[in-house]
Amino acid sequence: MKAVIFDMDGVIVDSEAFHIKIKMQTLQEYGIEAQAKDCVPYAGRSSKAFFTDFVKKSKKNIAIEEIVARKHTLTTEYIQSGKEIKPVAGAIELIKELYAHKIPLALASSSVRTNIETFLKKFGVYECFSVVLSGAELPESKPNPAIYLQAAEKLGFKPEDCAVIEDAHAGVVAAKRAGNYCIAFNNPFYENCMADLSAADMMVDSLLELSAEQIKQL
């Protein structure tokens, strides 16, 4: 592989649990009840996609832009509250190793750009990425392949020359539809949810299993 494209939530940032908590809090503020298990299938997808489906099912007259904005406000408040948010084990080390080996890196996340930049800067890897894309700025989120096609184009490589690291079903599907080589991180957060990562070309239980040399030889 000539380049690597990272997802963020669940791959770089150990954030899936608090994202679900905030989504549920947002829904409750608008009078929509939901359980954590209802949110899990939307991992890797945009907030717009998530809230569009839940508002539609509730049959409530709620503007999608409004409820999405409220979720982003609550997320920002959570991040700024000082509560500890950790990187996924091995993620930062892998990013820095790939960067040291001069392997071009892109970030392709469904999160809003402000959150992406906040986390990458917090963990000291923002400068490692030559391309940073937010799916929230695209018409459709994963599993639509647009974000991965755009990432490869901006990196200057064919999709098949780029390895994508993903942890969610929607992300794996998006990567394969784009023509990327996909490495699936079997995130323990989804252990009881049976996330379907079977479409990936390779699966690891920890990012500590990966190295720059190994990825170059794929």
Rank of each mutant, 00 (worst) to 15 (best):
A146M: 11
C182W: 04
A168N: 07
P145T: 09
N186V: 14
F185N: 06
N144K: 09
P188V: 09
H169W: 09
E160K: 05
F123M: 06
V132Q: 13
F123Q: 11
Y148H: 05
G124R: 01
L149R: 11
A175F: 05
G171S: 08
G179R: 02
S141Y: 07
V164A: 14
A146D: 13
V173Q: 14
P159W: 11
A174E: 02
C182D: 07
A163N: 06
V173W: 12
K121A: 15
L155F: 01
I183M: 11
K154E: 06
F185Y: 15
G135V: 03
E137I: 02
F129K: 10
E127S: 15
V131M: 07
P145F: 09
R177F: 12
A168T: 05
F157K: 03
F185S: 02
A184T: 03
G135E: 01
E127C: 08
E166P: 14
V131W: 05
A152H: 08
S130H: 13
C162T: 02
K122H: 15
V132M: 13
G179D: 05
A184M: 06
A163G: 06
V131K: 04
V125G: 13
A146S: 11
K121Y: 08
G171M: 02
A163H: 09
I147A: 02
K176H: 14
E140I: 04
P143W: 15
N180G: 08
E166F: 12
V172I: 13
A178R: 03
R177V: 10
A184P: 07
N180A: 15
E127I: 02
V164F: 04
L155A: 06
L120C: 13
R177Y: 10
K176N: 13
E153L: 01
H169R: 13
Y126Q: 09
G171N: 05
K176R: 15
